[in-house]
């Protein structure tokens, strides 16, 4: 049984269809990479999966349970999904350590000592514990993304979503994020990553899902998609990446 199973998902914003019948499955231990041009609905898709955005129709099964209904405990659902944002979204008034402990203290009800132990464990795992007392403004973009990932991991999520994790980073820092994702993959963390960064996609996965105009256009290896695909949209998107390599 897939961990996440999306069936015929539709999202309309004031009459405009951003998602036009998405079908997608994520299995435990998967690293699913969803690619597509800007505005294809990638971010909307991620936000529908944890109900930050309410889907218009279709079903989303999370561990076998339909989570599109009105009686679903949305906050419990969100707590089991780690979310890493493009712009890092660290809480700027809190230190690195406090960014990670906040949810443990307030949502999990841990004691301060327990929460700090757990947070330091995750920060150590990502090699950033030495910066524990710094504020987000005092660390680099790559370090911020490590903290954001540590904040997500600390809640022991079932799956981690990455929303364009490298688009605010230079190539060196992007490489850092790719290494992190590969590290998580080696530790068997289930991940769903949306990106338009073909370099990142190549570094973390050989297969991608291609999303365009609100539907899944293709699910294939990057090499196949890059080699003169019959679909002109796919061709346009991936050929730029061939030159880039």
């Amino acid at each position: 049984m897939p961990l996440i199973s999306v069936h015929n998902l539709v999202k309309e914003f004031s009459g405009q269809r951003v998602l036009n019948g998405i079908n997608l499955e994520v299995y435990e231990g998967d690293l699913k990479v969803v690619m597509g041009p800007s505005g294809c609905g990638k971010s909307t898709l991620l936000r529908c999966l944890n109900r930050l955005i309410e889907p218009t129709s279709g079903t989303i099964h999370f561990r076998g349970q339909d989570i599109t209904g009105a009686d679903v405990d949305i906050r419990a659902l969100r707590q089991s999904i780690g979310f890493v944002f493009q712009q890092f979204a660290l809480y700027r008034h809190l230190s690195v350590l406090d960014n990670v402990t906040l949810a443990l203290l307030k949502l999990r009800g841990m004691s301060k000592a327990e929460a700090e132990e757990k947070a330091l464990h995750e920060l150590n795992r990502l090699g950033i514990a030495t910066h524990r007392d710094k504020y987000p403004s005092q660390i680099s973009g790559g370090q911020k993304q490590r903290v954001a990932l540590a904040r997500a991991l600390a809640m022991d999520p079932v799956v981690i979503f990455f929303d364009e994790p490298t688009s605010a980073l230079d190539p060196v820092m992007s490489r850092e994020v790719a290494d992190l994702i590969n590290q998580m993959r080696a530790e068997n963390v289930t991940m769903l990553c949306v990106t338009h960064d073909l370099r990142l996609a190549r570094q973390i996965s050989d297969r991608v899902v291609f999303l365009d105009e609100g539907v899944v256009k293709a699910e294939d290896t990057i090499d196949h998609l890059c080699n003169a695909h019959s679909d002109s949209k796919i061709n346009d998107f991936f050929s730029s990446g061939v030159r880039g390599q």
């Binding site: 930050l52 906050r75 949810a103 949502l107």
Partner: peptide, 9 residues
């Protein structure tokens, strides 16, 4: 939004 995604009310 990040706080909402973490499950805060």
């Amino acid at each position: 939004e990040a706080a909402r995604a973490q499950g805060f009310n």
